[in-house]
Amino acid sequence: MKSTIITALLLCISLAVESHQPNQRYYALADLAKAEVDRSASQARVFAKELLHLSTVEPKDWNYGNAVHFGNMVLGQVALREGDIDKAEEYLLKSGATEGSPQLNSFGPNMTLAKELLEANRSDAVLEYFDLCATFWKLSRGRLDEWRQQVNLGEIPDFGANLRY
């Protein structure tokens, strides 16, 4: 069932990505890159790099912060799957070094790569990532502080919905 849903999702996103409307492609690439991480790391990398490239073309677009965040997050996930934990940490920090976006500022950042790095016992970069995210996620309602405390205790927080955004 999950495989069928992912395949349908990829088809829908692919149609948007193949659109001749540049903004539609730009807006769809983050979802497509995220969906490809566990299916095809090489394809996820291609989409993430294109997303980051398009962000340089559209730096004033409302999606710029999302592009920086998700493009780097996906590249970090790919690096982690390829065994390059140091590179994954670099990409995590780059994903947090965004000015934010309407979505990131309200719902917060995606914590998937942070969680994966915690599972690999790499908490220093995750704690630094929390600090970076605090610059744009003013509506965290204390979640970043709570997660920071848990990580300092050697725990992996329940990131809840921040694993799905």
Results as ranks from 00 to 15, higher is better:
residue 19 S to E: 09
residue 21 Q to E: 13
residue 22 P to E: 12
residue 23 N to Y: 08
residue 26 Y to A: 05
residue 26 Y to I: 10
residue 27 Y to P: 01
residue 27 Y to K: 11
residue 27 Y to C: 07
residue 28 A to H: 03
residue 28 A to T: 05
residue 29 L to V: 03
residue 29 L to H: 01
residue 29 L to I: 03
residue 31 D to K: 09
residue 31 D to Y: 04
residue 31 D to V: 08
residue 32 L to N: 14
residue 33 A to L: 09
residue 33 A to Q: 05
residue 34 K to L: 14
residue 34 K to S: 06
residue 35 A to I: 06
residue 36 E to N: 10
residue 37 V to T: 10
residue 38 D to P: 02
residue 40 S to D: 15
residue 41 A to V: 09
residue 42 S to T: 06
residue 43 Q to G: 05
residue 44 A to P: 00
residue 44 A to I: 02
residue 45 R to L: 08
residue 46 V to D: 09
residue 47 F to N: 15
residue 50 E to D: 13
residue 50 E to W: 01
residue 50 E to T: 10
residue 51 L to G: 10
residue 51 L to K: 06
residue 51 L to P: 05
residue 54 L to P: 07
residue 55 S to Y: 01
residue 55 S to R: 12
residue 56 T to L: 04
residue 56 T to S: 08
residue 57 V to Q: 05
residue 57 V to M: 02
residue 58 E to Q: 12
residue 61 D to P: 07
residue 61 D to I: 04
residue 61 D to C: 09
residue 62 W to H: 12
residue 62 W to N: 15
residue 62 W to R: 15
residue 64 Y to T: 15
residue 65 G to Y: 00
residue 66 N to D: 06
residue 66 N to T: 02
residue 67 A to V: 12
residue 67 A to S: 11
residue 67 A to T: 08
residue 67 A to M: 05
residue 70 F to A: 04
residue 70 F to L: 13
residue 71 G to T: 02
residue 72 N to L: 03
residue 72 N to Q: 09
residue 74 V to E: 03
residue 74 V to D: 03
residue 75 L to N: 13
residue 75 L to E: 07
residue 75 L to V: 11
residue 76 G to T: 04
residue 76 G to N: 08
residue 77 Q to R: 15
residue 78 V to C: 09
residue 80 L to P: 12
residue 80 L to H: 03
residue 80 L to C: 12
residue 80 L to V: 08
residue 81 R to F: 05
residue 81 R to A: 15
residue 82 E to L: 13
residue 82 E to G: 14
residue 82 E to K: 13
residue 83 G to V: 06
residue 83 G to Y: 00
residue 83 G to C: 09
residue 84 D to V: 11
residue 84 D to A: 15
